[in-house]
Write a protein that binds this DNA or RNA. Structure first.
Lengths: 264, 264
DNA sequence: CATAAAGTTTGGTCATACCAAACAGGGAGG
DNA sequence: CCTCCCTGTTTGGTATGACCAAACTTTATG
């Protein structure tokens, strides 16, 4: 019977358990999806990546090879790859071999990117994010005023100079503006902060870029940067914090009025 | 012929393009994985979720139903579901119907959870995260001292009282301890901060829980909380910041010595 | 030796089949 | 009439096997 032949097809499904535990009771930590067999593969690959068994920036083995290595079906392998990809541990472009990406703080930020983007579309989303940035930067300039090292000051001075030179070029000004603020995030010498800065700029940028810019406006912002810098150099945390607060508050007012996102 | 029948199998692969665009040039934003057909499904589902077409907390349609709705194979549907799941837009337990989860700031944090956990295993990872927490909380208590409202004070007072009552019960103490700090994150009235607190506690908890606790230790911590509270009530930002800094510094020293993770 | 053509992977999808756990109904027992 | 258990159906998890098109390799060619 033809039907019979077709029916045969799948031979050993249960036997596939060979080696792959499905963690029955496990810790069931926060991560939502778990329990499928793919998780075993995910876990192993994850380990191989973090331990360096799979070298960073090198391509992942072919799927058909992995399915042999884990004695799992391609279905499972693919699912594992998909998950790892959206977790940022591997980067998979459309039709190319996935590339191993050892996680760093920046990777972590891009992982939230998708959700954050959604949150920003909700009422008050942009405001909340911006406010958190103001809050953080206030603390950063304060910290800078208190503990900035010589080379931090140098960096700030250079960023400020570049900022000044770009006053007549709004595009360049924007970049140097971001860079100046970026220096503030490097002062605590904690890789988490630059990553956060990265996040802020990439998430808030869309709203900034649409905004009209002008040399006059740039000059105002430059003066603010100058004031912040001075306060830091003079080791005056309160003045630095206030200068920055005013700067960012003014900037917000500007966008708030430009669009008419009063309740954004 | 049986063989013929089998061979036929896949009828319209190319025709499957019916309605699903593969965004050839698209914006190709930051997200790594893109280009597969699943992305179309992902996008549509994503939209249906955020627009509320798919009600929050309600189960997703069955896979076999979705594949009809999107005229795509189950493979694609599953991949979409997997991705959305790891993005936090839907929550899928092992063998249950996936549940729609409208994103919030907390969801965003859990999305990074996986990566953060890895980062913590690296040299300096825990230290960096902890330092960032100290940095943030210093700013928070300062803010609290400056702008705490009446009800914020009430909340702090209550949290402090609960903390005191739990001194003899280390487990309870831990919880009230976390709760006390948690109140600080609510004072700026920005939903981002409580989410961050959530993150800190869940990520750093594993390291804390292993630590020995004792009533003596609890008392010391309680006194610290008391000092912080007092400074806030007295509207003294500098004192509050210092009290908190000392508190967290001491706590760190304690764990640092307990384990012998000098360069953790 | 550079380059174009031919051949071989390999990722992306589709279709089908089966299992086991979840779910929905219905009948037995209180 | 309500509760509980048993049973048939739905549905998620996996396995196979095929096929296409793009990427990668090898080989022939000018």
């Amino acid at each position: 019977m033809a039907a019979a032949q077709i029916a045969v097809g799948r031979t050993g499904k249960d036997s596939s358990v060979s080696g792959i535990e499905v963690e029955p009771g496990g810790d069931a930590h926060s991560m939502p999806q778990s329990g499928r067999a793919a998780d075993a593969v995910i876990a192993k690959l994850e380990e191989q990546i973090v331990t360096g068994a799979l070298e960073n920036n090198s391509p992942l083995p072919a799927e058909r090879q992995l399915m042999e290595q884990f004695s799992a079906s391609r279905t499972v392998i693919r699912e594992a790859i998909a998950t790892l990809s959206s977790r940022g541990l591997i980067e998979s472009r459309p039709r190319f071999r996935p590339v191993v990406r050892k996680p760093d703080y920046e990777t972590a930020l891009t992982a939230v990117g998708g959700i954050v983007r959604h949150l920003l579309t909700e009422r008050g989303g942009v405001k909340n994010l911006y406010d958190s940035r103001v809050f953080l930067e206030r603390a950063l300039v304060r910290q800078a005023a208190i503990a900035a090292q010589k080379d931090d000051i140098v960096q700030l001075r250079e960023a400020l100079a570049a900022n000044k030179r770009a006053i007549d070029n709004s595009d360049a000004f924007y970049l140097t503006d971001v860079a100046f603020h970026g220096v503030l995030y490097t002062i605590p010498k904690n890789p988490i902060f630059p990553a956060i800065h990265e996040g802020y700029t990439s998430w808030l940028a869309p709203h900034w870029e649409k905004m009209l810019r002008s040399p006059e406006r740039n000059l105002v912002n430059f003066r603010s940067h100058e004031a912040i810098f001075s306060a830091i150099v003079e080791r005056d945390p309160d003045a630095a914090e206030e200068a920055l607060a005013n700067h960012l508050k003014a900037a917000w007012e500007y966008v708030r009025v430009t669009f008419d996102l009063d309740q954004l």
